[in-house]
Design a protein around this nucleic acid. Sequence first.
DNA 1: ACGCCAGTTGAGACTGAGTCGCAATCGCAT
DNA 2: ATGCGATTGCGACTCAGTCTCAACTGGCGT
Lengths: 170, 170
Amino acid sequence: MKPHRELSIFRKYLEKRGLKLTSERQALFDELFARHEHFEADELLVRLRTKHKKISRATIYRTLDLLVDSGIVGRVRIGESGYRYERLRAGEHHDHLICNECGRVIEFFEPAIESLQDQVCERYGFLALSHSHQLRGICRQCRPRVSSREAGRAASAAIPGGKLRILPTA
Amino acid sequence: MKPHRELSIFRKYLEKRGLKLTSERQALFDELFARHEHFEADELLVRLRTKHKKISRATIYRTLDLLVDSGIVGRVRIGESGYRYERLRAGEHHDHLICNECGRVIEFFEPAIESLQDQVCERYGFLALSHSHQLRGICRQCRPRVSSREAGRAASAAIPGGKLRILPTA
DNA sequence: ACGCCAGTTGAGACTGAGTCGCAATCGCAT
DNA sequence: ATGCGATTGCGACTCAGTCTCAACTGGCGT
């Protein structure tokens, strides 16, 4: 729980391009590194507002852009609308399992998938700069609840093919 | 180029829930299956408008929802904002390589990745219902252009680690 | 062929997320 | 302490998508 490392990265990032570490930026940074969850921009706004800090929505977005750009925060398209942000630990990377029921986000990392991705890129002469890989469905905790609910409904929603099919969505 | 199969699926889908095949829905369907690219909702609106057909934005979205729900069209989060739609051929599935330069979308399918995904889900007791997997970067055609442009700039943007790193973004 | 009515449409108001312009303010190098 | 470029907050704005509702229509029943 020592965000010092990230703070100095951020500081350096700002310095390098003649930007300033204002009290708003510092406050946002602190709030962000006080937890370790995924969060939305407006969530931060509310949290800071309730903590007496005043900060505008525009500044939240502007600062978030800086943090993403500096590499210590990641911007992810999760859920149906808007972005979510997450702390990024240097050099680490992960993808997401997202529960449609409770919204829980599970991070996973599968080296074999990563290297297969590289192979795919090679195949197409594609230079990958970033990627996004998310699986949506029902998490372990929600499965019992959902399946009992389904039992109540008609079986009409059953997928024809029988076998579990994974279709693209987002 | 015979969309008859899909049309009958759509027809059946509508019938099953007492919905009607209106001229607007038919027109949208036709326009959609006249090509095979990824497209945005507003794009369809424009295309139909220029083809003398009048149709409202709301109807476009409503019909697109039906098509997605019936399984013959897929909704994908590509690019920075909004959705894109794409024809789905029955049983087929693919993921995307997206070029940041020209916007080109390359479809790929890697069975090994799919099965690794299943393994990841098992590991977490997660029931996957859909997934999204996109790599963003520079396509073969754009690479020469981009690298020469980069050469002009300072080398300051070089990634420290040296090795190609793939970071999450969307 | 006709009528009926649930389903459908278009227009425009609305929403939510994010961006922009600008005058007032602030960090910080000197 | 000073100066000035960077930054902020505000509110207006955009953009994609949704909603409401009165007017319209597809297609079943006869």
